[in-house]
């Protein structure tokens, strides 16, 4: 398989003049013609809201009327650095992101590998794994709340079959575990679809050849499937990471009470975007909330670029061999 996100570094490393002379203007025009839908959309629709959103973070905007809006310089950014909740929520977010992304990858890849094989009823199994992905998050959260409820919840009832008198108030004692399991459950379908699609690009001949050479299923997975799937794994990791960093509805919906601006998740599930959301909608600090979110943007960008960079070591490329 040819390098994917990796092409990024490869081109950057190449002296600009060399490829320009070799490829020529025509080639560049073709490139811009292909990406023109996105480029035009970005300039026409994306850029102005982005700029407004950025400028908002330098104001005292509180969501009410604009007559009182003033520039406050970098005050909001300074406040973010000194706010103990910023650090707390970022720590909890990283714990959540780390567990969700890794566990999610294992489950999604596992489901895809199991369902890539021609097993009987494959379409049905695929659909069952996909289903939670389309269950609306509000309904999913309700189900997980009653599922883990210490009074009539199914989870404790099932554990009670093995361990009588088991009584755990999951949402209070293990809020992040519940949140991670709920999120992984809900997102499995999406990742599985990507991995299933990716697995189709792996030639069956390669696996067969390896099996003839005496390789067991683990070796085939380790030396054939995973390396060839690496670009898709990278895609899924990046997308999961970005999504998990921004998670907000799931922790709010698992919190006590009905969903509203003041819904407060347990301290352990007080994630970064929840913090920003509260500053915006509860404390009426829209400008400050915007600053918090732009800081999150920078952290996400940094983590993503680090991930893409690290992929050099584990994403294998045909050309390099």
């Amino acid at each position: 398989m040819v390098g994917t996100a990796h092409a990024l570094e490869r081109t950057a490393a190449r002296p600009r003049s060399t490829w320009w002379r070799r490829r020529g203007t025509r080639r560049a025009l073709t490139f811009y013609a292909f990406i023109s839908p996105w480029l035009i959309g970005f300039v026409a629709l994306g850029a102005i809201p982005l700029l407004l959103a950025l400028l908002m973070s330098f104001t005292n905007y509180d969501g009410l009327n604009l007559d009182y809006v003033r520039f406050v310089g970098a005050d909001n950014y300074a406040r973010a650095v000194n706010d103990p909740d910023t650090l707390h929520s970022m720590q909890r977010t990283l714990v959540f992101v780390g567990s969700t992304v890794t566990l999610g990858l294992v489950v999604q890849l596992g489901a895809a590998l199991l369902l890539d094989a021609p097993v009987p009823g494959r379409g049905l199994f695929r659909t069952l794994f996909y289903l939670p992905y389309v269950v609306p998050v509000v309904a999913g959260a309700w189900i997980w709340k009653i599922f883990t409820d210490p009074n009539g919840g199914l989870l404790n009832a099932l554990i009670g079959l093995v361990k009588p008198e088991f009584a755990m108030n999951w949402i209070v004692e293990q809020p992040t575990t519940v949140l991670v399991l709920f999120t992984v459950w809900a997102l499995t379908g999406g990742g599985m679809v990507v991995f299933l699609a990716g697995l189709q690009g792996i030639p069956a001949e390669l696996k067969e050849a390896a099996q003839i050479d005496g390789a067991g299923p683990v070796s085939v997975l380790r030396f054939i499937t995973l390396p060839l799937l690496a670009p898709v794994i990278l895609f899924q990791l990046v997308v999961s990471l970005i999504g998990a960093m921004q998670i907000i509805q799931q922790p709010l919906l698992l919190a006590p009470g009905l969903l509203g601006p003041g819904t407060l998740p347990p301290r352990d599930n007080y994630l970064y975007v929840v913090h920003a959301y509260h500053e915006i909608f509860v404390n009426q600090r829209f400008g400050y909330g915007a600053a918090l979110l732009w800081i999150l943007f920078l952290i996400t960008l940094g983590l993503t670029l680090a991930l893409v960079r690290s992929s050099r070591r584990w994403v294998h490329y045909e050309e390099a061999q």
């Binding site: 102005i48 407004l52 400028l55 908002m56 104001t59 905007y61 604009l66």
Partner: peptide, 18 residues
């Protein structure tokens, strides 16, 4: 004029033609 005094319209300079 009213809006110009506010931060957000300054933000809207880019969007001014629009």
């Amino acid at each position: 004029e009213v809006l110009k005094r506010t931060g957000v319209l300054a933000a809207g300079i880019a969007a001014a033609p629009l």
